[in-house]
């Protein structure tokens, strides 16, 4: 069926009628209305500019879950892609895979976590094999530790030790980037030079 213009459509005999045709013939309103696109294009342009300004080429390095609430810090640097050790209240994972339960290792006497260390050694072997011909991306021992902010240092130190034993000595703590302080503290980088060094040690 053909698509017809909205509005009154009289029957043929009415259209030809001298009496009735006038009713339909005159004063008919135009059914087409212009669509104002200006505001929509403006909104689209603003959204695209905003999203482009916030665009991150690195993407999501960490898998954010509800179980891990990261602490906020204002003096961190941009996170790089590296293997991620996730520490929650219940388990320790590597690259999104659960490695060991926290309860299993809670009462161990030794410092390292053997299952994590083994997994990290395997990962290191794989990374070294993949990048053996790529001199620009040689294995640098970088690892990101993504721990919940309530995690005790007792667990973190064991994870750090296991990482170091497996060859991952370049440890980064994952944080949520907070706001930078505007006024630099004297002595800090970017601040005006501090007073000359004195021989006295602080009390």
């Amino acid at each position: 069926m053909a698509i017809l213009t909205p509005g009154k459509r009289p029957a043929k005999r009415f259209r030809k009628s001298k009496v009735m045709s006038g009713k339909f013939g005159k004063g008919r309103k135009v059914a087409n209305s212009d669509l104002q696109l200006t505001s929509m294009v403006d909104m689209f342009t603003l959204l695209v500019i905003f999203l482009l300004a916030n665009f991150s080429a690195t993407g999501d390095v960490l898998f954010m879950s509800k179980e891990i609430q990261l602490p906020t810090a204002s003096h961190g640097s941009e996170i790089e892609r590296a293997p991620v050790v996730a520490i929650t209240d219940n388990f320790i994972g590597l690259e999104g895979q659960k490695v060991v339960d926290v309860d299993q290792i809670a009462h161990d006497e030794i410092l390292n976590i053997q299952a994590l260390e083994d997994n990290l050694r395997d990962l290191k072997k794989r990374e070294e094999f993949v990048h053996q011909l790529d001199k620009d991306h040689q294995f640098a021992g970088k690892i990101n530790i993504q721990a919940d902010k309530r995690t005790h240092f007792k667990i973190i130190k064991r994870v750090m030790y296991s990482c170091a034993m497996a060859g991952y000595g370049n440890i980064n703590f994952a944080i949520l980037a907070g706001k930078q302080d505007k006024a630099p503290v004297p002595g800090a980088p970017g601040a005006p030079p501090a007073a000359p060094a004195a021989d006295q040690k602080p009390n």
Binding site: G59, E78, I79
Partner: peptide, 13 residues
């Protein structure tokens, strides 16, 4: 889009 800005604190052991 990345909605959470994640950073790192580099530490040595």
């Amino acid at each position: 889009a990345v909605w959470t800005q994640v950073g790192k604190l580099q530490v040595a052991q």
